[in-house]
Amino acid sequence: MSKELSMALPFYRHVSDLNQRVWVLQGQTLIMAPRKANTVPVIVGLYPCPHLETLEKDRGKPMYLGLQEPQCSLLCTKIGGQPVLQLNERTIRNLYHYPEPEKPFLFYHNEVGSTSTFESAAFLGWFIAADSTGQSPVVMTQEVGKTFVTEFVLTTLS
């Protein structure tokens, strides 16, 4: 069942970290790479999940995350016994309009100062992360504050 909700468009953002790296798409993989003159950062779309009542409080704003091009969503699913981050062909608009919260696609967006963390709603304690140096894929980790970067900066498109 599909229904019209209030937001016609998601929030569009660039995602970077505190090491001057940005989210870029390499093939079918989302990676963090140092920003260069020819770097094309991905445009990330965020739709707040409208099902406040069914989700955990105080973990942040539940969000569906996806890419604008190609249109896809971020999914946290268990492969080989471990939660991994994948790009999924479902659009965040579809998820936003879905009558039930789709937890594998949901991330709690928690803002601390100017940085944001994204915790999987399906696997609490697992965060979207990237290795702290060089060019590294965007993955899921539960090793917060170690070698992985879990704090990202969302910037509006200029």
Partner: peptide
């Protein structure tokens, strides 16, 4: 910069629901 949800609720439920 904020990514807030804006909605109407009644009895802690979205009105559409």
């Amino acid at each position: 910069e904020n990514t807030n949800l804006r909605c109407w609720t009644v009895n802690n439920t979205m009105v559409d629901n």
